[in-house]
Computed example of a mutant assay.
Amino acid sequence: MTNTTAQAPAGLKTSEQKALAALADHSGATAAEIAAHAGIGGSTAGKALTALESHNLAYRERGEKEGGRKTADRWYHRPVEATPEHISDEPEAAEASTEPAPEAPAEAAEPEAATEAPAQPGTPAAKAAPAQRLARGSLRQMVYEYLEAHPADEIGPSGLAKILGRSAGAVANALATLTDHGQAELTGESPRRYRLAGQA
């Protein structure tokens, strides 16, 4: 029998030393089996094995789903002399890679103009994919193309935003910029209304 507790790093709890000794003699056992061999509780064994894994003294082989149920993880002893605890934590990193990758966070809240979705010129089809990013100036181009396609219309930021599937604030900024460039004109102040420039 290997005297693993003598090789263990200082500072291990008694339960962790017991789990390590049991694991050395029963490598490939489940946490429940280790608990029985070590004479400690099931939850205590689980915590002890996780601690040993963090010290690079043990590693697990994760269970697989069988018939809608997941089999128990299998734990294996990692001899101290083979992989000193101070070398690196690469084995842990490799083990962690078997976990499902965390879901990417939802699109972060950013200024609407910076996260607009590309749209076909002159159509409200942008409403179909609002979460995609637009290149700089693309929203302004969409607004201009709508005005160009409807030269007789006088429309406000809120109404146009609903048509394009964008925020009213971003559309209002685009309309203001087009007005400054002489491509659109303000036809009403309260509420604000715009149309294509040169239609008077």
Rank of each mutant, 00 (worst) to 15 (best):
A72T: 08
A131S: 12
P130H: 04
T98E: 14
G156D: 10
L164A: 01
R136P: 03
H77P: 01
A31I: 03
G169E: 07
Y144V: 00
G11M: 05
K65C: 12
A93K: 14
R74H: 14
A172F: 04
A119K: 05
Q120F: 05
G182I: 04
T5V: 14
Q7G: 15
E66K: 15
H181A: 12
E85H: 08
D180P: 00
G42E: 08
A200H: 14
N173A: 06
Q183H: 13
L186E: 04
E16K: 01
A32E: 13
H150P: 04
Q141F: 01
R166I: 02
V80K: 09
Q183D: 10
A109P: 08
A21W: 05
G159W: 03
G28P: 04
A31G: 09
A6M: 11
E107L: 09
G188E: 14
P118V: 06
T71L: 14
Q7S: 15
R78M: 14
E66N: 09
A10S: 11
Y59R: 07
E103D: 14
S138T: 05
P157R: 04
T4N: 13
H77E: 01
E92C: 11
E185L: 00
R133N: 06
A161F: 00
E110K: 12
L57D: 03
T4C: 13
A117Y: 06
A161K: 02
L139P: 01
G68K: 06
S88H: 09
K162P: 02
V171S: 05
L164D: 02
T83I: 14
A200E: 11
S138R: 08
A38S: 09
V143F: 00
A24W: 03
R69K: 15
A58G: 00
L147E: 08
S97D: 13
P157K: 05
L49T: 01
Q132N: 13
L139M: 08
T177C: 07
G39A: 07
K127W: 02
E185V: 13
E185G: 05
E154P: 07
E92P: 02
E92H: 11
R166Q: 06
P191H: 05
E148C: 05
Y76Q: 07
R192Q: 08
G39S: 11
N56M: 13
A19V: 07
S27G: 01
P157N: 09
K127E: 03
S190R: 15
S27C: 07
G42D: 11
P118D: 01
T177G: 09
Y194T: 02
P105E: 14
P105H: 12
A32G: 13
E95M: 14
H55N: 07
A58F: 02
E85A: 09
A109V: 12
E90T: 12
A108N: 02
P102R: 06
K18Q: 15
A184E: 05
R74C: 05
T5W: 12
P105K: 09
G169V: 04
P102V: 06
L175S: 02
R136W: 08
E33I: 05
A10L: 12
G39D: 06
L134N: 14
A172K: 08
E154Y: 04
S138D: 10
D89E: 15
P191A: 10
T71D: 08
E189Q: 14
E33F: 03
Q141M: 07
T83C: 10
A51V: 08
G41D: 09
G39L: 10
T98C: 06
S190I: 11
T179Y: 01
K47H: 12
E189F: 05
P118Q: 03
A152E: 15
A174T: 04
T44K: 14
